[in-house]
């Protein structure tokens, strides 16, 4: 009995050690692939960064109509964002190559699921990009329009519009990514409704003065006190 136990133990230990020994070259390959990819990624980033700087990439991007990219970028520099993204991509590739050395089947499954998820990622990124551009455009339109109408809460109105579009955009992007759709819908409803109520209250309270002024002007007009303005612009 004891000899059988010993034999089983020896066999399982031998099996484990054999499998571990089989894995060791793969692990070593993974570490080497990772190290190489880190070095290559850093070198590529170091080449790309001055190249983009010399091309004035940050200014050009803002001029092409994507100033919001700078806001998301590290240290507000899209150049840094691009160079780091390239480095991260190279490292990810190195990691996948390393994983393939450990277990080819697992890697192919992982690759398949990642590839299947790529359209969702791209869709979400596009929604975020377009949403950001629209949010900025609408916020500016509302801000300028409200200032030209002499509204004292112009900035609040503009911020409200911007955040409404941003919240809507983020909710749509998360829906694309299939991340907790139930929670996202609920959170979106609460946030969107909250912003609308806040804006309605702010505008309602802020309009008191406006309505008072308007009524005063009407009263002055009716009493004939109000002299016609002499200014003619065109």
């Amino acid at each position: 009995m004891w000899s059988q136990v010993k034999q089983q133990l020896a066999e399982s230990t031998a099996r484990f050690l054999t499998r571990f020994a089989d894995l060791l070259p793969g692990l070593a390959a993974l570490i080497v692939a990772l190290l190489i990819s880190i070095v290559v990624g850093c070198i590529l980033a170091a080449i790309v960064r001055p190249l983009l700087s010399s091309m004035r990439f940050d200014e050009r991007l803002a001029r092409w109509g994507f100033p919001s990219v700078a806001e998301w970028s590290p240290m507000k520099s899209p150049t840094l964002l691009v160079s780091r993204a390239i480095a991260a991509l190279v490292m990810l590739t190195g990691f996948l190559i390393g994983i393939a050395a450990v277990d080819a089947e697992w890697t192919s499954q992982l690759a398949r699921s990642i590839v299947a998820y790529v359209p969702n990622l791209l869709g979400a990124a596009l929604v975020l990009l377009v949403g950001s551009v629209i949010a900025r455009f609408l916020a500016r339109s509302v801000l300028i329009g409200a200032v030209n109408l002499n509204l004292h809460y112009a900035r609040l109105l503009s911020l409200g519009v911007k955040w409404m579009v941003v919240v809507l955009t983020v909710a749509m992007a998360l829906e694309h990514l299939r991340i907790a759709p139930g929670i996202v819908k609920l959170a979106f409803g609460i946030l969107f409704g909250g912003i609308v109520i806040t804006l309605a209250l702010a505008v309602g309270l802020g309009s008191k003065d406006l309505v008072t002024k308007s009524l005063e002007r009407d009263a002055q007009k009716a009493s004939g006190d109000n002299q016609e303005e002499p200014f003619r612009h065109i």
Binding site: L143, V147, A154
Partner: peptide
């Protein structure tokens, strides 16, 4: 002439724009 409306617009612009 009454320039208060125009002055107010300018001050708002300086604050918000």
């Amino acid at each position: 002439v009454d320039i208060s409306r125009m002055m107010e617009s300018f001050q708002l612009g300086v604050r918000d724009l």
